[in-house]
C-alpha cells in the first residue's frame, strides 16, 4: 500500500491534498473527516496539546485500518494522515478521506476509520490545561491485551 496514503507526520495537514488522493473515476462520493483541536472539553479549557506517536507502528496501524475498510467496503479507497507534535486550538490533528461509488459507504467507512484510530493506533495526546497538563487515554475504555477487531 502506498505510504503516501497513510502517514504520521509533524507537518501541517492539507485537507485538499489528502482528499484529492482518493478522488477517482469510479467514485462519486468522498467523505473527509477533519479532526481539529477543540478549545473546551467538558467545560475545561485546553491551551494547546501535543501528540506523540510510535511513528513506524502507527503508520502500519493506519495501513491496517485501510485494509479493514477494504474487507468491509471492497470499493472504497482511503487515505489517513495524522499529525504529531505541538498543536494549537483549531489546528488539524487528523484527516481521513474515503471515496466510494455511492455515498452511504463513504460515510460508514469513514466513521469506521476514526473509531479504529481511537482503538489501535499508537498515538497519544497530552492536553495542556490552564492548571496543568495530562496524558489522555482510555477514551474508549480500551482494555489490556490485543485490541478487538470489532467494536
Amino acid at each position: 500500500m502506498n505510504e503516501s496514503f497513510y502517514s504520521v507526520t509533524k507537518d501541517q495537514l492539507n485537507i485538499e491534498t489528502i482528499t484529492q488522493k482518493v478522488i477517482r473515476r469510479e467514485a462519486g462520493a468522498v467523505v473527509t473527516f477533519t479532526g481539529t483541536v477543540r478549545e473546551f472539553t467538558q467545560g475545561r479549557k485546553t491551551l494547546s496539546l501535543r501528540y506523540d506517536a510510535y511513528q513506524s507502528m502507527a503508520v502500519k496501524q493506519l495501513q491496517r485500518i485501510g485494509e479493514e475498510i477494504n474487507e468491509r467496503w471492497p470499493d472504497a479507497l482511503s487515505a489517513i494522515w495524522h499529525r504529531t507534535g505541538h498543536l494549537q486550538i483549531s489546528d488539524i490533528a487528523v484527516v481521513i478521506a474515503v471515496s466510494t461509488p455511492h455515498r452511504k459507504d463513504a460515510y460508514a467507512a469513514n466513521e469506521y476509520a476514526i473509531e479504529r484510530i481511537k482503538q489501535i493506533v499508537p498515538i497519544w495526546k497530552k492536553e495542556q490545561w490552564e492548571d496543568g497538563s495530562e496524558w489522555i487515554g482510555n477514551q474508549l475504555e480500551t482494555v489490556s491485551g490485543v485490541p478487538e477487531e470489532e467494536k
Partner: peptide, 10 residues
C-alpha cells in the same frame, strides 16, 4: 517491544 498505554489519537 513497546508498552502501549491506551491510545488517544484522532
Amino acid at each position: 517491544l513497546a508498552l502501549i498505554p491506551p491510545v488517544s489519537g484522532g
